[in-house]
Nucleic acid binder design. Sequence first.
DNA 1: AAATTGCTATACAGATTAGTATAATAAAAG
DNA 2: CTTTTATTATACTAATCTGTATAGCAATTT
Lengths: 186, 186
Amino acid sequence: MSTLREKILTTATNLFQTQGINSTGVDTIVAVAGTTKMTLYKHFHSKEELILEVLKQGHQDFQSWLSDKLTSTKKPSDKLQKLFVFIEEWVTSPDFIGMGFIKASAEFPNEASPVHQLSSEQSRQFRQYISNLASDAGIKQADILALQLSLLFEGAVQAEQMQRGSGAMKYAKKAAKILIDGALTP
Amino acid sequence: MSTLREKILTTATNLFQTQGINSTGVDTIVAVAGTTKMTLYKHFHSKEELILEVLKQGHQDFQSWLSDKLTSTKKPSDKLQKLFVFIEEWVTSPDFIGMGFIKASAEFPNEASPVHQLSSEQSRQFRQYISNLASDAGIKQADILALQLSLLFEGAVQAEQMQRGSGAMKYAKKAAKILIDGALTP
DNA sequence: AAATTGCTATACAGATTAGTATAATAAAAG
DNA sequence: CTTTTATTATACTAATCTGTATAGCAATTT
């Protein structure tokens, strides 16, 4: 396993989030990663492929991290509540740089774009993950609640990126609690 | 008053939203608008100024449209509820192309960028507008409710852009009603 | 009639972009 | 020892980008 490939991936992840995807050239990526363009293009056939791999890696890391965090919580209805607690920790941690698929879908609005399609798919997967948690908690219309919670989540990530330290996720969490409690007691 | 300036503005607004801001060159804008680069640069000193003007115009149009819609509703507490009804109409209308400041802040993540700063300011203004409606309705912690409602709004606009016809705003509206009702009856 | 104004058309400069070609270096594997 | 593999370094191509320079046209204004 090449360590340079991972170095390029993490460097690109950071630059894409902090400077924008289209605004970050491959020359900048290799310079920061401390390698050359030839090496980058041996590991990734094109910039688009690099973008897609960055998205895949980021989403996988996030989902793994979240699943790990939630294993300690046993009761299904508690998991749904804990979800936003952990997400708030993540968002307010100093090394939070945003959610890949949110920025990517904004920078690639054309629905025919592979980047847009992957972003859309990842957003759908995350919503499905929440929906499964809601189902396990015995909530009837789990899909609807999952959609509403994901709106709060994505809106808060966006708000946090627009102005760091806005505390958006704190109040998203409180709103989520109201919606979850409402869905739990029919 | 030049009509070409407006033509350039509306053309740029559409292209920015459908193709992305950084992905849309001034050559494309003038070609679609049916004019030349010289004319564009007579009306706007730079592409950045054009972007800023597009944002200002879009935000002003949206706020005017929303204020007009809400004048027919007299009772303050009803206004807050009606807000999401009108916004859902707007989002589901066929000529909906998204919210300028949401995409702009994603494409210009650097906080030092004037485009990012204006986007952030417009988001803040919209939240303040909601907060004022909440205050008029007699809600105590109006700022918190306004933040939560704006998260639902921005999340839903984002979701609608990620997948048209997702119906995200419909359920954002229902979530908003729950939060508003909860805030109205303490 | 002359001058100003708004716009078109075209060509260009200078910078940046994604991606490739080629040669050299260093280390590991045969 | 020799060959393969991974990487570096540099130079390059071809396209694209923002912004400007120059010249001309057409309508309005003075």
